[in-house]
Nucleic acid binder design. Sequence first.
DNA 1: CGGACAAGCTGA
DNA 2: CAGCTTGTCCGG
Length: 578
Amino acid sequence: MVRVLPDVGAIDKEFDYLVPDALAGDVRVGTMVRIALHGRRVGGWVTAEDVVPAEGRALRPLAKVTGWGPAPEIVELAAWAAWRWAGRRASLLTTASPEQAVRGLPPAPAPGAVPTGPGTGDPALTEALEHPAGRAVLRLPPAHGLGPVVLAAAARGRVLVVTPSAPMAAELAIGLRRGGISVAVVPREWARAAAGAQVVIGARGAAWAPCPGLASVVVLDGHDEGLQQEQAPTWVAWVVAGERARRAGVPCVVVSPCPTVELLAWAPLVVASRSVERAGWAALEVIDRRRDDPRTGLYSARLVDLVRDGGRVVCVLNRKGRARLLVCGSCGATARCTRCGAAVTQRRDGDPPPLVCGRCATTRPPLCAECGSTRLAALRLGVARVRDELEALAGRPVGEVTAETGPMPDAAVLVGTEAVLHRVGPVDAVVFVDFDQELLAPRHRGAEEALALLARASRLVGGRHRHGRVLVQTRVPHHEVLLSAVNADPARLAASERGVRVALGLPPERALALVSGPAAPVFVASLPAELPAGCEIRGSGEGSWLLRAPDHRVLADLLHAAVRPPGRLRIEVDPARI
DNA sequence: CGGACAAGCTGA
DNA sequence: CAGCTTGTCCGG
């Protein structure tokens, strides 16, 4: 007799079934089965074997064995993650399972010729993998090759590699295969991974992929938002990978050019040598636009030079979710929150209408914080015009790229939203036309996301040795993000960011959950009136509540104790936006 | 989720 | 009061 968790959205409950003798050999914890439930057939996973029969209940037999599913330790990991992110096990087990039924495994691939011996391993990676803490964050600059890092890990045994995107995983896999290593790219090659490939690689779902005989786990670009699942449960791949490695007793290394404060709180930091780090960040030119007219000064002389004869140039313009910025008419400074540094907007009510921070809601009188002037002007980019104007300035064709546009235009100069950075190959220069939208984004991870953009740009143009250029136009030229990138020193931003998080009670200082949806009021009302020490709940007034706890354990236990009412309820633990 | 069944609403 | 909609419950 086995216990089965049905793959049905609203059911987070297990049911017991008899195993027909004919199927007995194919059934273990994790196996995907079909069961008769309430008059219909649904899929599910075996979650326990040898269940003691309950009294007085006629059990139905399993209808069918669908095929291989996640290994027993992954089923346990899913239970842990369901607790950690207040989600359903079924949604996590789906991620951990093959997309198509796997009836049998292919023969185990030969590991291939993994170069071993002295001189083959990246010394920084070796130090990270052998860190006594069992886990480490390895800071390697953007242009540092990741192929050799994976190779060095593969030399120590079977390795699970998690990347923020599928194309990145595919590209690394091609390089590894060329080197003769056996690779399984998940989710497509789930069965090959289960059969025992030397490297199992994929996007965030790879944190759940099969990898028998796992020797180490490597997460690449650990700062990237792509490692977090957008829909609830909002699990984060490096957290899952770390927990999996801990349970398996193997090391986990998270590699990133710009580790977030959350990563730095999670594991000890290992850094490459200063010269390696400097060489791996592109030269960054900061163009101070404070003296330019906010309405006309979109194109600095340096920008015009670059698009005229800068080879392949990509111009990034953030036109989506573009908030209006206020600029001082006297000194050119951008209006920012005096408490947290995010961009402020002007309210319509009040006399005079006050400035309000989009991040921490602090309000202040409408004066320039730099020079005291009352002349604050709204700055809006004429985005639709930018492509045309650049084409006129450059004297050569300019193509437009966004997430929605079709094939890549055949032009040496491209203008696009951030999506363009994910779609182009190597280029000679990247220009951020108006970086202040990024620098001052009223999101709690805004500054880190801005540095991540500069890191991505650095990778596209190659490191300092390739003479690629990254150009940033800004009215906040001394922002920590820019200083960090200019100096190839991400620790700088991490230090200041750490202070902001402590002051505002944000992660990693505190653990957060955002509760929303029609059922949210009932759910919130069912929380104990006397919250555990250090916890608080704040309503937004728009049907969502922010729950704050000293750490994830307290937060998860609290969410677990509340009554989950019927109806739609979204619980976002570690929300990307608050 | 989706079927079963109960409780409410409507119109001749 | 049949016939239908809407709500609540529960599954092995």
